[in-house]
Design a protein around this nucleic acid. Structure first.
Lengths: 219, 219
DNA sequence: TAAAGTTGTGTCAAAGTTGTGTCATGCCGC
DNA sequence: GCGGCATGACACAACTTTGACACAACTTTA
């Protein structure tokens, strides 16, 4: 799992970022001032640093100069919307910047973009204790590999990508099987059963009677 | 719930907008001059800004330049109906504009249109302590899930979308059942009873004698 | 080519949904 | 206030949908 360091003195913001990065499947560590940030960088190997500019102890620009030689990508977080700040950051070697306050979606998009640029993008999905490696087409639960067939895998991906959404049987079938759904067979149902069984997801894959299925998070 | 910021110096108008947006299920905050608006934008994450052009302190155009980099959609409110103003606003990056005085219906339509364009379209409905997740097709009351059948769910959505409106039995039936209403059976009535019971909405779902039903807010 | 694995389908039982009928109650015009 | 009609309350049976499972056709692998 990719490791991201967040250096941000406002704990509320740091936490918000951390929660969202965790949800998106990254390991995330927070530092609340520049010095703490420098220490963590010294000891841990991070794949990306999110760096606030205005920091106690050591400011963001200074920290940036320290990080750059390590080859770790950096995204600046800047509260000031002035053009000068952004330019200064980029000139010093930041890979991107985000103007606070930002939308979480934007944060994730930029994080992914930078990681991809560095060839570190890991195409993985996560749900509960299950992780899905899309490139390897491999699924693990608590670090143990679970063998899924092609259809089971595709179905799982479709469910996880649309978690908490009631997926209509016809749409679900058409997405996974790439053919029209007639509804006269037990094919979809059987595969759902097999997935539930293999993953132990009897609780999470809910039946929405007369509609289809929903992968549910909220228990 | 989606958050909308209204920047408008005429308190009467700001309030009117706020009330209507609240009714429609949005969280709404008002600012009465440009500076206040800028502060709020700085601190809060808004899904949409409604922006008057003529403002004390900082005018709408200036504020727009500040908002745009955040990726937040903006709808201009313009008193002047001159073509130039509208064009200037749209050119600067506004997503839409409304000429004052406007109809509330028009406001809501444009708000929804813009939010949809940004993929933020309201996916939840609220009424009293009940919230309805349209994607998940799940209903909760005070955070507890309430199981509804397909018909019950569709009926509920129809009622909530038309709260405080007397819905004629035939129209209601045809919308939910997608077939003509003959009126010879107790089908609709039964489903209304079931909804009332499951949600504890005996008070809110009123019978309009000889007409149909109305979901009532005003108690 | 045999063996192993995958996938679609059928059957049966169980579970859930939905329309309808009946009777009681309430509403409204007269 | 009364008669007639509309709705509430409720029970029930027909019907549909899904779970569970077995199996055969088919595909891939050794």
């Amino acid at each position: 799992m990719l490791k991201i360091l967040v250096v941000e003195d406002e704990q509320a913001i740091a936490n918000l970022i951390k929660i969202n990065l965790n949800d998106a499947g990254y390991a995330c560590v927070c530092a609340f001032d520049g010095k703490q940030g420098a220490d963590l960088i010294e000891n841990g190997e991070f794949d990306l640093v999110l760096l606030d500019i205005l920091l106690p102890e050591i400011d963001g620009y200074e920290l940036l100069e320290y990080i750059k030689p390590l080859g770790t990508p950096v995204i600046f977080l800047t509260a000031k919307g002035t053009v000068n700040d952004r330019i200064k950051g980029l000139r010093l070697g930041a890979d991107d910047y985000l103007v606070k306050p930002f939308q979480i979606g934007e944060l994730l998009a930029r994080v992914e973009a930078v990681l991809r640029r560095y060839g570190k993008a890991e195409k993985q999905l996560f749900f509960k204790e299950v992780s899905i490696n899309l490139d390897a087409r491999q699924v693990t639960k608590n670090r143990k590999v679970i063998d899924l067939t092609v259809k089971e895998f595709d179905l799982l991906v479709e469910l996880v990508r649309n978690k908490n959404v009631a997926l209509y049987r016809d749409r679900l079938y058409e997405r996974v099987w790439n053919e029209p759904f007639t509804g006269e067979t037990r094919t979809l149902d059987s595969h759902i059963q097999r997935l539930r069984k293999k993953l132990g997801w009897e609780e999470y894959i809910k039946t929405v009677f007369r509609i289809g299925y929903r992968l549910e998070d909220s228990i």
